[in-house]
Design a protein around this nucleic acid. Structure first.
Length: 436
RNA sequence: GUGGGCGUAGCUCAGUCGGUCAGAGCGCCGGAUUGUGGUUCCGGAGGUCGCCGGUUCGAUCCCGGUCGCCCACCCCA
């Protein structure tokens, strides 16, 4: 730990040494493969945006924890805390001429100024995938499937994680039905949101603190404790509004089941999402063990583009962070090992053989192979040890004997078998089939 | 933002009721091994014990502050 704090890493920020970057790239690669498989194309935007883009569009929650400041021109700016407002701004300018629906994804680095904890830093990377211009529930199901497959692609299955799905319109209908006043709705959503962790007692206390009456509080506490689909349907079978609000979720589930992803999703009345701009189906991905924070959160936001000044366009999307996902992969032991540093290790014994060693290395690199060699003269044992440590598949040995005979000794470092071949075959490119 | 715990070698950690207390394992470097590696054996480098201040003859140890990390709240991507 450096004693001079001025050179220390900022709290909540990460260095990525090769082993860490290998994991990050492993995750990014999986995300991009899945998104492309679903026909999404990648975009990006500036990491720094006008503060105003976030102030009223995302709800007050996110603004309190922005990484913001005034730039040298006196502009109030913020490091982007989320990607959706940027996407909304881009599309507000250009979507009119674009074929709908638009399927875009991005892997931005996002920033928030808040105390860091496990799975929650001041900086992270997040996969964002959105479908814009389609209001039907098939788009919601499609985006949920992308989220699920983005996690499955990394080797996690039904036993590892689940998507909890809800619909804000359904929650609203239920609140109306049990008589929660309009003015209490937002605060009530917050209580429902944390009900899973708080437990029934605290939930009821929270509702009463809002001034929500006994029968309504009782009904809500019950729903929160056991908000099963069946229970909901029984409880509200005489309410046309609630039953109608259940239809989109029904269809959403059917589509996912048809995709073979039914086991990855579950209705959960307590999922409402914090961001103010969600308007319909919302979902979150969690590890089944319940040890970590949400892996992913998303939903429908049909009004946002209008708010930013674009044409009215329905939209649905999600954000999936790299931090919690990385923790989960490490916990499950399915994080990748760092890639080997090279394929071929050229061993030259004495300065007299170095020029030939350089020619061989050059020829191999020209073929696209990754090649290393010692930068100073060392014994063969040392060099083979170095070769093994960097993960080389084979060693190409060029000593006095090889120079005299016009040959190269090619040693397979996994089997230990070695053959002596002609120098020409290595320089000419015939040697590349014997290695990895 | 609030409360609690923890900061000793690159990593994981031991240790001192205040006085040879600067330690282990792993890793790293070198040697055994100047034409054959991943094993083994031997040796070596590396630390102002997070930082600042206080108490004391003396502080890595006690006290205060501070910074950082972890956990729980708050909140949430």
């Amino acid at each position: 730990m450096p004693s001079d704090k001025s050179f220390a890493k900022l709290p909540g920020f990460r260095d990525f040494v090769p082993a860490d970057l290998a994991l990050r790239n492993h995750i990014f690669d999986a995300w991009r493969r899945v998104c492309r498989r679903y026909g999404f194309t990648e975009y990006d935007g500036p990491p720094l945006e006008p503060l105003g883009l976030y102030v009223e569009k995302s709800g007050p929650e996110i603004v309190e924890q922005l990484y913001n400041f005034a730039d040298k021109g006196g502009r109030e700016v913020a490091l982007r805390p989320e990607m959706t407002p940027t996407l909304a701004r881009i599309l507000a300018e250009r979507s009119r001429g674009m074929a709908k629906p638009i399927r875009w994804f991005s892997v931005p680095q996002l920033f928030r100024y808040e105390r860091s904890q496990r799975g929650r830093l001041r900086e992270h990377f997040q996969l964002n995938a959105d479908i814009v211009g389609e209001a039907g529930v098939a788009a919601d199901a499609e985006i949920t499937a992308v989220a699920i497959d983005a996690v499955r692609e990394l080797g996690l299955g039904e036993d590892d994680f689940v998507a909890r799905v809800n619909d804000r319109r359904l929650v609203t209908a239920v609140l109306d039905e049990i008589g929660v006043a309009q003015r209490h709705r937002a605060a009530c959503l917050a209580v429902i949101d944390k009900a899973g962790r708080a437990g029934p007692e605290k939930t009821r206390a929270g509702l009463e603190a809002l001034g929500i009456g006994g029968s309504a509080a009782h009904a809500l506490a019950e729903l929160v404790a056991d908000g099963s689909w069946r229970q909901l349907r029984d409880r509200f079978r005489s309410s046309g509004a609630v039953l109608a609000a259940m239809q989109p979720l029904e269809e959403h589930r059917e589509i996912l089941e048809a995709m073979g992803l039914g086991g990855y999703q579950r209705f959960d009345f307590t999922v409402v999402r914090g961001l103010a701009y969600y308007t319909g189906i919302v979902f979150e991905l969690f590890d089944r063990a319940g040890e970590l924070r949400a892996i992913c959160g998303g939903g429908r936001y049909d009004r946002l583009l209008e708010l930013v000044g674009g044409e009215p366009l329905p939209a649905v999307g999600f954000g999936m962070g790299d931090v919690v996902l990385g923790e989960l992969l490490k916990d499950r032991g399915i994080a990748p090992a760092a890639a080997p540093a090279c394929q071929d290790y050229v061993i030259w014994m004495e300065p007299a053989q170095r020029p030939l060693g350089m020619r061989v290395a050059r020829a191999l690199r020209r073929e696209g192979r990754s090649v290393l060699y010692g930068l100073r003269a060392q014994g063969m044992g040392k060099q083979l040890r170095s070769a093994a440590r960097v993960g080389a598949g084979r060693a190409l040995i060029i000593g006095p004997e090889e120079v005299t005979g016009g040959t190269v000794t090619v040693r397979d470092l996994e089997s230990g078998r070695q053959v002596t071949t002609s120098l020409e075959s290595v320089l000419g490119g015939a040697g590349h089939r014997t290695g990895r």
